[in-house]
Simulated scan of single mutants.
Amino acid sequence: MGCVERLAMTVVHAEGLPARDRLAELGLSVERIEDALRRAESERNFCTPLDPVSLPGNIFWGRTIRFLRETYIPYGWTSASPSNVPLLVAPSGEFAITASSGSPETGYAALTPSTRYAKGNAVMKRVEANRQLLLFGEAEAEPERQDAGDGIPTWFLLYHHSKTDQGTRLHAELSFPNDTGSRGKISSWYERIILPWIDFEGGFTPFADDDDDDGDGGIDIPIERLS
Rank of each mutant, 00 (worst) to 15 (best):
S100R: 15
N121I: 06
S182F: 13
I186C: 04
F176C: 08
F46V: 06
E31S: 13
A139H: 10
E5D: 15
D212G: 05
S54A: 15
N45Q: 12
P91V: 09
S187Y: 04
P104M: 14
T168V: 14
D21G: 10
T180Y: 00
E25W: 00
K163F: 06
A36S: 10
P49V: 14
N178P: 00
G181Y: 04
R39F: 03
I33W: 00
S42Y: 06
G218V: 10
I223D: 02
V89G: 02
N178S: 02
S114A: 10
R131A: 04
L157F: 04
N121E: 08
S100C: 14
I198S: 08
S79D: 09
D165V: 09
P91I: 08
R39T: 08
E140L: 10
N84C: 11
T112K: 10
S42G: 09
T71E: 13
E173W: 01
C47Y: 07
P91W: 06
G76R: 01
R225H: 05
P104W: 13
A118K: 11
R126H: 07
K163T: 11
Y117F: 11
S114N: 02
L133V: 01
G149L: 07
V89Y: 00
R20N: 06
L134P: 00
F176D: 05
W197S: 12
E43M: 07
R66G: 05
